[in-house]
Design a protein around this nucleic acid. Structure first.
Length: 269
DNA sequence: ATATGCACCTGTGTGC
DNA sequence: TGCACACAGGTGCATA
């Protein structure tokens, strides 16, 4: 579910938590894809949230006493605020009690998400992440250097978190459509002009998606439980057979590395 | 080193 | 209605 625009929207809706104290943590299900560590709740109780940051698709909650709560929403995860005592839903795996009568629920039906407490200098998950395409986009030269010699499809190159941190399956198709580049093109065979258009398209698509609060395809919600609206602006994702909004040719679906790709066979070369 | 396949899960939609 | 199957926003490990 969540790619950069969704995670950034969650970050913004949870930013007001800065200054609140985590008074208790109820771990109702530890069996996430990576099991919740022993001592997770005890390591958090009593700490105050000092920052809410994002790196690629990771959320980082800065905590008093030199600790970080690292969170990833996987495919189906959400973090939603609600008043204390609100009914638990199925798949509410962790409930954080906060000062001021609030609770924050980590809800994740597929359990691909991740929660971990760590010291700020112990975050190996973030080591290999590429530059943030919104906050610190690379120059065309730098992206071209990363693509040099690579034979993997440009769509998978964009989705590789070591290239740019935060692009997933939906936005990869949308970016390639806007840039006029076919998803199956080998990354290393892109021309300089293709690279430049890709970077422009990436910035435009992600910025607009953030403005609209991300895409709610089925059940994505921000930290206040509200949906996003960028799904209404998706041009090709999940639109196989529908007319291309630019030239009316039918949108095609293919598979790259096991993930669906959507593109216009006329507009994208 | 690089690219792909599959596993990890539950829920939903489709076709029979 | 029930059932089987495909597919879904991600990542990490095994395998060529």
């Amino acid at each position: 579910m969540p790619e950069l625009p969704e995670v950034e929207t969650v970050r913004r809706t949870l930013a007001p938590l800065v200054g609140r104290c985590i008074t208790a943590v109820d771990v109702r299900e530890r069996r996430l894809r990576r099991p919740i560590q022993p001592g997770f709740a005890a390591a958090l109780a009593g700490r105050t949230i000092t920052a809410v940051d994002r790196r690629a698709k990771y959320l980082l909650f800065g905590l008093s006493g030199d600790a970080v709560l690292l969170a990833h929403l996987g495919m189906s995860g959400s973090l939603v605020l609600h008043p204390r005592g609100a009914p638990r839903r199925a798949h509410d795996h962790v409930v954080f009690s906060l000062s001021g009568g609030l609770e924050l629920s980590f809800h994740d039906p597929r359990r691909f998400g991740m929660l971990r407490v760590a010291a700020p200098d112990d975050l190996p998950e973030l080591k290999e992440l590429g530059p943030d395409p919104v906050a610190a986009p690379p120059s065309p030269e730098a992206l071209a250097a990363m693509a040099r010699g690579r034979r993997k499809p440009v769509k998978n190159f964009l989705m590789d978190q070591r290239t740019l941190g935060g692009i997933g399956n939906i936005y990869a198709s949308e970016i390639l459509f806007l840039a006029g580049v076919r998803p199956g093109r080998a990354a290393g065979r892109l021309r300089r002009a293709d690279i430049a258009r890709l970077l422009e398209a990436t910035a435009r698509v992600l910025r607009e998606a953030i403005e609209l609060g991300g895409s709610s395809i089925s059940d994505y919600r921000n930290g206040r439980g509200e949906p996003g609206y960028f799904q209404l602006r998706l041009k090709v994702y999940n639109r196989a057979g529908e007319p291309c909004p630019s030239c009316s040719a039918p949108v095609k679906r293919t598979v790259h590395a096991g993930r669906s790709s959507y593109y216009c066979p006329r507009c994208q070369r």
